[in-house]
Amino acid sequence: MGERVFLVVGYHSAELLDIACVTSALQFANRIGAEPRYRAVLATPGKDDITCDSGLRLAADAGLERFNETIDTLVVSGGLGHEDAAASPLLVGHVRRLATLARRVASVCTGATVLAEAGLLTRRRATTHWRYAERLARRYPEVQVDPGPVYVRDGNVATSGGVTSALDLTLSFIEEDHGPALARAVAMGTVAYLQRPGEQAQLSIFLIPGITDDLMVRRLTEHIVSRLDQTLTTATLARLAGVSERHLSRLFLAAVGETPAQYVRRVRTESAAQLLSTPLPLTAVARRCGFGSTESLRQAFLDRYGMPPSRYRRNAPAGVEVGPKPI
């Protein structure tokens, strides 16, 4: 088999990381033994150079209009220019045409808007950057938009969340093409702490406290993250805050979109996911994160990630043993 061509679609005000996460992971895979090798090609309208969000200019390898090679994977980048890109009949038309030449079709971040405009997401489940998910769903009601996952694969079409999720999606492609050992080596080589499964949430519990202005909720989330092995029932948290359970639930729903119980379960599961990159046995992971048993831990992983912790651990490169820390 010849080389695998990844055709990356760029345009003015594309996000540089959306492009670089894909191309850098592929080149790292080549360096450590991917066979057949990958060839990343940046294609733009007219083969014009593009200026990225960051202000850096990129030289195109090919023009969208003239590219007619067989494509392994077509990837549409996201960025602040995605609306203008989706409004361009030339760009959208050639994305639609090139998709017929590709084995796989994908988008990074807001590149999903271009795929939706091209009709490639119709009646498919898809994701995008969480900030733009509601807008995508309103504009394209025929697309089943899910703002939660890092990436979603529906048939031969894949969409990913914001920016660095491009690396997670590319790692999943490398694993599909060359097996988990090479994908794990690329993850370690690019210093990706964890090769995240697609169903992992874009918004980690380690970020939530920093994006809510509610001081009480912030203090409680910090308390939860730093005391996972303690009793964290809604009643316990309400007593700590000096409010009723009903009022506490209203505050959490408004601030983080979950009840206290749902938030605690998610914190415990995500923290356990971090610890699975260490040699700790499952019983110790479960105890440290506040699960009553390894079976409770297993059920939480099935509910959140669609896989048991043992499989999740196989996807995680070895790391340094750390415990949950306050934010």
Rank of each mutant, 00 (worst) to 15 (best):
G111F: 08
V75F: 02
V108R: 00
A86H: 03
L101Y: 13
R104V: 01
L90Q: 11
A106S: 15
L115D: 06
A106R: 11
V76S: 04
A86M: 02
E83Y: 07
L80V: 14
V76P: 03
E117I: 05
A99Y: 04
V76L: 04
T113Y: 15
A102N: 10
R97S: 10
R104K: 05
A102F: 09
H82K: 09
L74A: 05
V108S: 05
S107N: 07
V105E: 11
T113F: 15
H94N: 12
R104Q: 10
V76Y: 08
V75S: 00
V75W: 01
V95S: 08
T110D: 05
V76C: 04
V76R: 05
G93L: 06
A85F: 12
A106T: 13
T110L: 01
H82P: 00
A102T: 10
R96S: 10
T100D: 15
V108T: 02
H94V: 03
L80F: 15
A87I: 02
D84P: 00
G81L: 01
G93P: 03
C109W: 04
V114D: 08
A102C: 08
L74V: 07
A86P: 01
R103L: 07
S88N: 14
L98Y: 08
G93T: 07
R104N: 12
A99G: 07
L98I: 07
D84C: 03
V114Q: 06
L74S: 02
A116M: 04
C109I: 05
T113L: 14
G93M: 05
L74R: 04
A106E: 12
R96W: 00
R97Q: 11
H94T: 04
A106W: 12
V76G: 04
A99W: 04
E83A: 14
A86V: 00
A112Q: 12
A106Y: 13
T100I: 08
A116Y: 02
A85N: 12
T110I: 01
L98G: 06
P89V: 11
L101A: 14
R97K: 14
T113D: 13
T113Q: 14
R97P: 00
A86K: 05
G79E: 10
A116C: 04
C109V: 06
L74K: 07
L80S: 15
V105L: 05
V95C: 10
A87Y: 02
A87K: 08
V75M: 01
E117M: 11
L90S: 13
R97H: 09
V95E: 10
